[in-house]
């Protein structure tokens, strides 16, 4: 599992879509440009959704991987 520094962590385990993306958006909205959010989800749909949402909004998806914990995302706010 990759690890890197992050500024906030958001646990979306057990939530179904659209909640992981909605909560991620809300968390990102409170952060400053350049800060990194770590988000963990268990909904398999979040893998492609977060990636599509990030490319749509311009936030940088640094890591998108599947671990024992779930799907782990590191997102850098634009």
């Amino acid at each position: 599992m990759s690890e890197m520094n992050f500024d906030q962590v958001l646990d979306c385990k057990g939530m179904n879509c659209p909640l992981p993306v909605i909560k991620t958006k809300k968390a990102i909205d409170t952060m400053d440009s350049g800060q990194v959010l770590k988000m963990i989800a268990t909904d398999p749909g979040s893998k492609n959704d977060i990636s599509a949402w990030a490319s749509r909004t311009g936030h940088e998806l640094l890591i998108n991987e599947q671990t024992d914990e779930g799907y782990v995302f590191f997102i850098k706010k634009k």
Binding site: C17, P18, V21, K25, A52, W53, R56, T57
Partner: peptide, 8 residues
């Protein structure tokens, strides 16, 4: 139209 477009 992806649901997150409605969100954004």
């Amino acid at each position: 139209v992806p649901y997150f477009d409605f969100m954004e």
